[in-house]
Nucleic acid binder design. Structure first.
Lengths: 340, 340
DNA sequence: TTGAAAGCGGTACCAT
DNA sequence: ATGGTACCGCTTTCAA
């Protein structure tokens, strides 16, 4: 009998050795039973004894020890600086997690708030993940990617405007959003087109390509494009609306549906007719766009299914040295309503 | 010289032994240098050699091996079934992660989509976290909590309407939201009050206590309360608005600002005057409420700061056997605008 | 100042 | 059908 002190403060965590002792077998047998190893035959009687002992002790295997021994963890690391917002993204995200779990991966989101790119890569590498999918968080550098690959990551996938050397790339081509918006506004006869650039930090990586997309669509067709800084506050929108008539614009692509709602309200409060004097277009196809009057025209974004991306992960893990693939995560579509 | 094959497909992950070999020292020395152990003095020359060797090999320590040896991981596990939605929650969440990182914890969100409660607890226990903060994901049972504590978790904190035995509890008392709404509507002279119950799954845990709160406020004051099922679609709202006059209600608490916007639009399309014929109240104080006409009255929710919760974690980890604490995460406040 | 060696908790090969 | 044992990568005492 063991003489473990029963001070609840100091009760040690049970190990497979404890289970073995209680069941009167060896640690090997415990391992065989609990993993139902098929290569080895264990009598029904001992199986039962082992299971009971494990239950009684509340034994749970130690993941770190196991993966240390086996040399691999089937852990997919999803660095996340901030919780991503928006229903599209979170739907995609959930699908993705779900699909990975079905493929028997363990999905771990690792909070990397406020880390530098290479510092973060190091921290991730310490966990020895089999795959790293950098959707949010610090941008991976080629150095970081190499570090991760050297420490055993089979798949490194980044979400970035430009592919980074050594990693598979997911792209969300936001210029497509601007392209759709610009094309639509042009078709409806608008020529002088404002484009809202949110002043909130962290949105440049979306707003800039959207602006570029509008430019690409409009400036070839004889229109002009004017960037408009706007922050997500009523006062900012009111100020912009106040000097609207001096801008000489007949349409605006408002970055997304929320900014569109904000700006449209300010324009209407200023007495401007939408879309008569100024067309307003959003993006994301949120419910609120349908509830506005006039109903908001928008660019709908579909994110590739999480299943699709999970399959990519599986494929790359199986064949780590294939050529880096490029995938576009996003498909844009114009939804014309009343505001344009 | 070692004869490692340079097939990129098979290059083994460098270990501290590799670093030691390359630097011509022992593994112990490598460990001392890389962890700058203060109890041991190493000559500057060897320090340099070790550092260079580590860099050259791209050596990154193996977190699992380290925590296996040291017996603890400073890992805080945040189970998450789905990405939480809503700007309030995600702000709080980010603050929390940030604060934990400052306290030198490693924050890991573990995707537990579609797991049963005890299955999930087991999976979490395998990772041997020092703390588990179950904000989302499966509800912890007393059994699950015990399992986690037995496997070394110093702090188990749940977010639940009712405290669960053995764990510290965070509460978000959503009945307070209903209470504020009910009280406000009563004060404004409304008596027959509808309460929207979203039909979307997973929202019962919020909608039910909100309904109860309205009841508590209204039924004492001589009013009546009528639950109204509504799903987040225009058709559903239109149907409800269509039979509105038969309901004989003079006010509605619409669960939150988004449902409020949906319902208010449908009521207005039906020709009802808001708030003349029917007052509408939301919750969350989203920007969109200020942009509606009439401006939406709402119940504002403040979430306790993430720093606050991080301090709780730290305190409990230091003193694991203290009495379970209860904290309320939410403070509700009425914001009266034009829609009531 | 440095090295040898034990051991953290599992797994899997090889005996018996 | 089981047990003994080496080993995964790292830390840390103890000796030299």
């Amino acid at each position: 009998m063991s003489q473990i002190p029963h001070t609840s403060a100091e009760r040690p965590v049970p190990t497979s050795a404890d289970v073995a002792r209680l069941a009167g077998v060896s640690r090997a047998t415990v391992s065989y039973v609990l993993n139902s190893t098929s290569a080895v035959r264990i009598s029904e009687a001992t199986r039962l004894r082992v299971r009971e002992a494990a239950d009684e002790l509340g034994y749970v295997p130690h993941a770190a020890a196991r993966s240390l021994r086996s040399g691999s963890s089937r852990m997919v690391l999803l660095p996340a600086a901030a919780v991503p917002v928006g229903p599209l993204y979170s739907r995609f995200f959930n699908e993705f997690q779900w699909a990975l779990r079905r493929l028997d991966y363990t999905v771990v989101q690792y909070g990397s708030l406020g880390m530098g790119p290479d510092e973060a890569a190091r921290a991730w590498a310490e966990l020895r993940p089999v795959a790293v999918i950098a959707l949010g968080g610090p941008q991976l550098t080629p150095t970081g990617i190499q570090l991760l690959r050297r420490s055993g990551a089979k798949a490194v996938i980044t979400l970035a405007p430009e592919p980074v050397a050594g990693a598979h790339a997911l792209a969300m081509d936001h210029s497509q959003v601007g392209l759709h918006a610009g094309t639509h506004l042009l078709e409806r006869g608008h020529r002088r087109i404002g484009v809202v650039i949110p002043e909130e930090p962290g949105l440049e990586m979306f707003s800039q390509p959207r602006l570029d997309g509008v430019r690409a669509a409009v400036e070839g067709g004889g229109g002009t494009v004017v960037p408009l800084a706007l922050s997500y506050e009523e006062a900012s929108a009111a100020a912009l609306a106040g000097r609207w008539r001096t801008l000489g614009l007949d349409a605006v692509f408002a970055y997304n549906d929320e900014y569109a709602m904000l700006l449209m309200r300010a324009l209407q409060d200023e007495g401007l007719d939408v879309p008569g004097e100024c067309a307003v277009m959003g993006a994301d196809d949120l419910m609120l766009g349908r509830l506005l009057r006039p109903r908001l025209s928008t660019v709908q974004l579909d994110m590739a299914t999480g299943q699709h991306l999970a399959d990519l992960v599986e494929r790359v893990v199986r064949n780590p040295d294939g050529e880096p693939e490029r995938h576009d995560l996003m498909i844009a579509r114009t939804i014309a309503r009343e505001s344009t």
